[in-house]
């Protein structure tokens, strides 16, 4: 099933003189249990595309198919589309700003209850989700506003996980995090993927793309200009500064230029590079 994006167009402020076309003829297929990154500059349309997946935005032209749901201009007002949000969970950038309940558990249960689950069961699901993100019982009754920034974000993510969607979309999940917190969060996302969820990450962070994802789509000025593996992307974007190539790839590329027989496509982290260098030295 997954997500099928078929030739969609979208323009912000259609009637205004400063109308900006955010998406221009975008087509994309995302399979179940994909681990996908969508990259691109600010203003490339990647966040707009993400908001199509749970019908927060509706394309002006073209269709987005998610499971049994059809998102297009014709049925933009359909109340049925709200049910879609139970299947596709969207975690916005800096989601810590959406908390509002008196206690952490209530806040996490809020979304679950909105989809018609009874209060008791919602709280139970909230507890499971909170433990999943690494917050134990001692947090359940605390006020979300007393937590640290990182903890707040975990609560916000738990709030989406508790709804139990099949597809999870994260917009810059690690923005502003220190390296350890980023690693913890990405490990959690990887675990969700291993448990069968489809994961879509919108990010600028090429190290993250390189380390965690299997497939990456690049948007430029509202169009898909690249769709492939992270390593293929780094070859594609070589030489322009709009996106950072990960350091490990830079080293590999420089060694290759010098004449080392090294397959860049096999380098995903330091370990891979060290192995490749070892092989090369043994041969020499």
């Amino acid at each position: 099933m997954g997500i099928q994006v078929k030739n969609i167009f979208f323009t912000y402020q259609k009637k205004a003189t400063n109308a900006t076309q955010a998406l221009a003829d975008v087509s994309l297929e995302i399979k179940d249990n994909d681990f996908l990154a969508i990259v691109g500059e600010t203003g490339s349309g990647k966040s707009t595309l993400a908001q199509m997946f749970n019908a927060l935005l509706v394309p002006d032209k073209g269709d987005v198919l998610v499971n049994d749901y059809v998102i297009n201009y014709k049925n933009r007002k359909s109340r049925k589309l709200r049910g879609l949000r139970q299947r596709v969970g969207l975690v916005f950038q800096f989601p810590e700003y959406q908390l509002f309940e008196e206690t952490v558990e209530k806040d996490v249960a809020f979304g679950v209850k909105n989809f018609g689950v009874k209060a008791e069961e919602a709280i139970e699901r909230a507890h499971v989700a909170l433990k999943q993100v690494g917050l134990d019982e001692s947090y359940f009754k605390r006020a979300p506003f007393d937590l640290s920034g990182g903890e707040k974000r975990k609560v916000a993510i738990a709030g989406i996980l508790a709804i139990n969607p099949d597809i999870l979309v994260f917009d810059e999940p690690t923005a502003g995090f220190d390296p350890q917190s980023s690693k913890d969060l990405m490990n959690l996302i990887t675990e969700l993927h291993n448990n069968g969820k489809t994961i879509i990450i919108i990010t600028h962070d090429m190290d993250l793309v390189n380390t965690y994802t299997k497939r990456v789509v690049m948007l430029e000025r509202g169009q898909v200009t690249f769709d492939g593996t992270p390593n293929e992307l780094f070859a594609y974007i070589k030489g322009y500064d709009r996106l950072d190539t990960p350091s490990v790839i830079k080293v590999a590329e420089k060694l290759k230029e010098k004449g080392m027989g090294i397959n860049i496509n096999e380098i995903h982290n330091n370990n891979d590079l060290v192995e490749a260098i070892k092989k090369w030295r043994n041969k020499a």
Binding site: L56, Q98, I160
Partner: peptide, 19 residues
């Protein structure tokens, strides 16, 4: 901008602002 962002975030948690 912030209002729009929060509305969308809460809509993603099943809040219906229109009905």
């Amino acid at each position: 901008d912030e209002t729009e962002r929060i509305m969308k975030a809460q809509a993603s948690r099943g809040v219906d602002f229109n009905h």
